[in-house]
Design a binder for these strands. Structure first.
Length: 773
DNA sequence: TACTGGATTATTTTT
DNA sequence: TAATCCAGTA
């Protein structure tokens, strides 16, 4: 009976409640993963359920992988037969087997957001809509919501009243037609088509219903309508559906998450057993209390209050800064200090923020402070230009119908096939109703191509030769061959910039990813690799074993925990965002508050919140008040440190309603410190540090360039510099200037240069790569 | 056809 | 601020 040994009574009950519908309302840090994994173990060893009949669904691959590992640990054998996967990959697996039954080819490609955008752009052009009025992004998001709600193009059209919506309906129709033509599915289609398959093919549905007798869904609060339809259909026969979630952590409404799925679960399943987990094992008392107080301001929620046996712990630190630079500087130096003084691992820290754009400042400071870090989010590794180019070659070899991939690479590297020629081939393809690639093969029949026809011939010949080799080359060999033949890396080497070097690094990383895949996959194949790649999220790259500080949005942090958490940018207008503050819908603000709740409850030991009075947003300076969420935390739980300014401000504006923080009196958000801002400005030079520090270092992409090798940030200090004070040096971006000062620090030289066109900049020698002239 | 520079515009969050 | 788009030129 040792499966139940380390569980509290509620957890044990949840584990043993194996039959029928079960709703587990699991507060943050209440051990829901433990419950799920133990439940699987219980099913197998106590109830004698065949592991093959159990399915657990998560949202990210990382969560799936984690669950898999934990199940492996407690289940003696058969653990690998439990189907643990994300919604999307489960659907892909089902569709690869049966999608031909609803008229698709089983070797379909999966389009990412960027691919969808390109398709939509063509759709808008084709339908002669004004691109100023109809933005791909908007239309796609409308289509996406429709798909989430399982609304077909026809139904969408029927519902359309306004002329504008009818146009969107037309786009929806045309967009689907094109995906179909390219034998492609977008993200939402994976779910929609699976449900469609289930609804149209009794045999397939029956097969899965019979096989998957025990279904578990993690992060249930974030499921949308199609996902619900999916699990409902799957579980309809045996009705052993166990969902785990926390309505207070529902943060994906904008992406179609339907909170009614969790709030109304008992309506759909009246016999559902509901179990609440309210004991928190993660955070200190102060952190938990702060979280409870903040979330209590929401109206539409199931009331619960987390408690813990953990100690009170320290107070929550709140610090206010002049601007984002100081904020980032504080966080960086605070972490560095704790690392060196208290010997804490870097991986004990995480910085959470509202928008990805905020990561830049932290990245700069971390780089300067030589702190290993990793940014999650922003541009996905597989969305990088160079990676997408190479993948497009692989896709072209793999799936002749994927027009998008072919068009991407037809002129990469330059083959003298320009836009107008491509247009002619496209027109020909449309007229003949054949795929773009097929049209390329018949280039000599395309009118008006002239000499370009032979260039196209050379291209298709090359692709054909790759195709003829794909069966006896490994994916890795094929990829290396493409890189070699196209001189992709060679061209980048010739470019010889920081950016091109970062791209080469990424390509090498891709090759090792492929090697990895071929090593661990049961039956490695080109299609298999491309499919795996299509479904990875950035968070999946996080390696818990590596020692680095994690920087990510609050959204990405869901499901994670850290000893020490910094929540940055706690400002009204940023978090909660300006849009939600001005929205009439109160619900929007509540969702932001839930996001805040998620952030606070990530912290185990300490929580630090920071804000900046002045922040650069889109090249414009904003003055923000301290976030209302900070003010919702009881005064006695907050430590303001010795910051005189904040104290003074506080003293002047103590909230008469009780001991709560109140920064509301500070109408211009500027406090008493406008003077010191001017001082700062001078100190930083006129562009306030943007690009000033760090100099010519290119943080190509969104800083993920070193995603797989965080130690690459550890720059070696040069033994000696080739220039000294008074020398004239050249900088990649700032041009020529005179060295006015060199300060030797422990890890690097800090060089001050007076540039002819950019003024005085301070930078670290190892990053700036200055050359004496 | 390929490249450049100026104008334009975007920001919430991403499986 | 930074990425993207488009028009004009070589």
């Amino acid at each position: 009976m040792d499966i139940l040994e380390r569980l509290n009574p509620e957890q044990a009950e949840a584990v043993q409640q194996t039959e029928g519908p079960v709703l587990i309302l699991a507060g943050a840090g209440s051990g829901k993963t433990r419950v799920l994994t133990h439940r699987i173990a219980w099913l197998i060893s106590e109830k004698g359920v065949d592991p093959w009949q159990i399915m657990a669904i998560t949202f990210t691959n990382k969560a799936a992988q984690e669950m898999r590992e934990r199940v492996n640990k407690i289940v003696d054998f058969g653990a690998e037969s439990v189907w643990v996967s994300t919604f999307h990959s489960a659907c892909v697996r089902i569709l690869r087997r049966y999608i031909d039954r609803i008229g698709f080819d089983t070797n379909f490609t999966i389009y990412d957001t960027e691919d969808s955008k390109s398709v939509m752009k063509e759709v808008i052009r084709k339908l002669n809509l004004d691109p100023k009025l109809y933005k791909e992004r908007n239309i796609l998001s409308k289509i996406s919501s429709a798909k989430n709600e399982m609304i077909s193009p026809d139904e969408f059209e029927r519902n359309a009243v306004r002329w504008e919506e009818k146009n969107v309906a037309a786009c929806y129709h045309e967009y689907q037609a094109r995906l179909r033509q390219n034998n492609a599915l977008d993200f939402d289609d994976l779910l929609v088509k699976t449900v469609e398959l289930f609804q149209n093919d009794e045999q397939v549905l029956s097969y899965y219903q019979d096989r998957l007798r025990y279904l578990m869904v993690d992060e249930y609060q974030d499921t949308n309508t199609v996902q619900f339809a999916f699990i409902r259909l799957l579980s309809a026969r045996y009705r052993n559906l166990c969902v785990v979630g926390d309505d207070d952590q529902s943060i994906y409404k904008f992406r179609g998450a339907n909170i009614r799925n969790i709030l109304g679960f008992e309506k759909v399943f009246p016999d559902a057993k509901v179990i609440k987990l309210e004991q928190n094992y993660r955070s200190t008392g102060s952190i938990l209390n702060a979280a409870n107080e903040v979330i209590a301001n929401n109206v539409g929620r199931k009331v619960k209050r987390l408690w813990t046996k953990n100690g009170e712990g320290g107070k929550i630190r709140f610090k206010k800064f002049q601007n984002g630079f100081e904020e980032a500087e504080f966080v960086a130096s605070d972490i560095r200090e704790k690392h060196s003084r208290e010997g804490l691992d870097y991986s004990a820290f995480a910085i959470l923020y509202r928008t990805n754009a905020q990561s830049r400042l932290f990245e700069e400071k971390f780089m300067m402070a030589n702190i290993p870090y990793k940014i999650v989010g922003g541009v996905n590794f597989y969305s990088r230009k160079e990676i997408k180019d190479i993948l497009a070659y692989l896709k072209t070899v793999d799936n002749a119908q994927d027009d998008l991939a072919v068009q991407r690479i037809i002129n990469v590297p330059k083959r003298g096939i320009g836009a107008s020629s491509i247009g002619k081939v496209e027109a020909y393809a449309a007229e003949q109703e054949i795929a773009f690639y097929t049209a390329l093969m018949e280039a000599e029949n395309v009118p008006g191509l002239g000499r370009t026809a032979s260039k196209i011939g050379a291209f298709t010949l090359y692709i054909q030769s790759l195709r003829s080799q794909k069966d006896y080359l490994s994916v890795r060999e094929l990829t290396e061959k493409i890189i070699e033949d196209t001189a992709y890396v060679k061209d980048l080497e010739a470019e010889d910039t920081d950016e091109s070097r970062a791209r080469i690094d990424n390509i090498n990383e891709l090759i090792s990813k492929i090697a990895d895949y071929e090593e661990k996959a049961d039956e490695p194949s080109l299609s298999g690799f491309l499919q795996e790649v299509a479904l990875v999220a950035d968070i999946d790259f996080v390696d818990d074993q590596e020692d680095y500080v994690l920087l990510m949005t609050l959204h990405s942090a869901k499901g994670l925990e850290f000893e020490h958490v910094y929540m940055a940018g706690m400002e009204d207008g940023l978090f909660p965002s300006y849009l939600t503050l001005t929205a009439d819908d109160r619900d929007e603000l509540e969702e932001e508050r839930r996001l805040c709740y998620v952030g606070i409850t990530r912290a185990k030991q300490t929580l630090t919140m920071t804000s900046a009075m002045m922040r650069m947003v889109r090249g414009e300076t904003q003055y923000n008040k301290v976030s209302r969420f900070v003010r919702e935390i009881p005064r006695e739980l907050v430590d303001l440190g010795r910051d005189e300014e904040t104290r003074r401000e506080l003293r002047g504006s103590r909230n008469p309603m009780g001991g709560f923080l109140n920064f509301g009196g500070d109408a211009d958000g500027f406090g008493s410190s406008s003077g010191s801002y001017e001082r700062r400005q001078k100190a930083y030079g006129n562009d306030a540090g943007y690009g000033g520090y760090g100099g010519g270092r290119k943080t190509y992409g969104s800083g993920r360039s070193n995603a797989f090798s965080p130690r690459a940030f550890t720059v070696k200090k040069a033994d000696k510099l080739e220039y000294t004070v008074g020398d004239r040096v050249r900088h990649v971006k700032f041009g020529v200037g005179e060295v006015t000062d060199i300060v030797e620090g422990g890890k690097d030289y800090e060089v001050t240069v007076d540039f002819e066109n950019y003024g005085i900049k301070r930078m670290f020698a190892s990053f700036a790569k200055l050359k004496k002239v």
